[in-house]
Design a protein around this nucleic acid. Structure first.
Lengths: 160, 160
DNA sequence: GACCTTGTGTTATTTTATAACATATCGAAG
DNA sequence: CTTCGATATGTTATAAAATAACACAAGGTC
């Protein structure tokens, strides 16, 4: 139920702590947290918005870490499939996970004005839609929940 | 809270009733329910799964109703922006609305095995995530909710 | 040292979506 | 009735997002 995202905060910590947490988890799980993968996660952690794969690819290219789409997509696959990042389906873009290592039922809030993305942890998909699924006889395995609207920082500006 | 989707049913009615409802709404609202738009909605209603834009385009092409992508995308835009169809973000595909004309907070259930899509009506995004948004100071305008899993008809088959 | 696994480099292609401009239809205003 | 504006469609071209397929490299293990 906790949300971190739109508040002011020490942003350096976002990156450091995020990387450290994933580093530790990779060591525990025997996953290779390679330079490309680490750098991509850093890019994602550096902004509280979702980055497109090609945007990431451009950043990698500037650093000589890879120049072709599969490089970016492979790193993103690694991060997403291990729960270190999420794909924001609505945007065809990717965001670092704010709660790496914890049980996952992310709810994303996407600001239509500044494009920032915050991740809230809800309980489980079951607790939210379990009753609907049960009615239908459907077994939920995973849920995409993405709310669009206006973040607190853009609330006053442009009422449209 | 009602779900129609995975049950056996008189499928001809899905199409007839769906078209009739949208036809009526268009007349009321002064919207043009043109042949292309009508046909695209029929394609969507004909299957309880999501169709890709290019899949729809192929069907239009076979009937001589248009052969270039914008034709399909424009018809889909019309249907989606008037609430007669929905985009399933997870699939980059489109499905007819099961509840045209009613207040909208659709929850989609996507079967990973047979690819069928059912639409349930939840209350409002607010009732589902309002507390999360409130914590964050976020104003929800729209929500994408898509659950993936296994539909009742595929439940027994292939436990993977 | 041969082999296997995992990750990266690279080329090419597929899939999804839109920009931009031309043409057509139709009702309302003049 | 004809000119205009609004809306819809036709068409060409291109952009944006994603993946297939194969080659190479590094590191561990038998």
């Amino acid at each position: 139920m906790e949300t971190i995202g739109f508040e002011r905060h020490d942003h350096a910590c976002c990156i450091q702590d995020g990387i450290a947490a994933v580093d530790a988890q990779c060591r525990d799980a025997g996953l290779q947290f390679t330079p490309v993968r680490r750098r991509v996660l850093e890019f994602l952690l550096a902004e509280h918005r979702a980055l497109g794969a090609y945007e990431i690819l451009d950043m990698l290219r500037e650093e000589g870490l890879g120049s072709q789409p599969p490089v970016a997509y492979r790193a993103l696959d690694f991060l997403v499939s291990n729960g270190f990042a999420h794909k924001i389906e609505r945007l065809n873009a990717f965001a670092a996970c704010s709660h790496p290592g914890t049980a996952h039922a992310p709810v994303f809030m996407i600001c239509r004005i500044c494009a920032s993305v915050a991740e809230a942890q809800a309980d489980t998909p079951i607790s939210m839609f379990g009753h609907l699924a049960k009615n239908a006889g459907f077994t939920i395995e995973r849920a995409v929940v993405e709310a669009e609207g206006v973040c607190p920082n853009c609330q006053d500006t442009s009422p449209t």
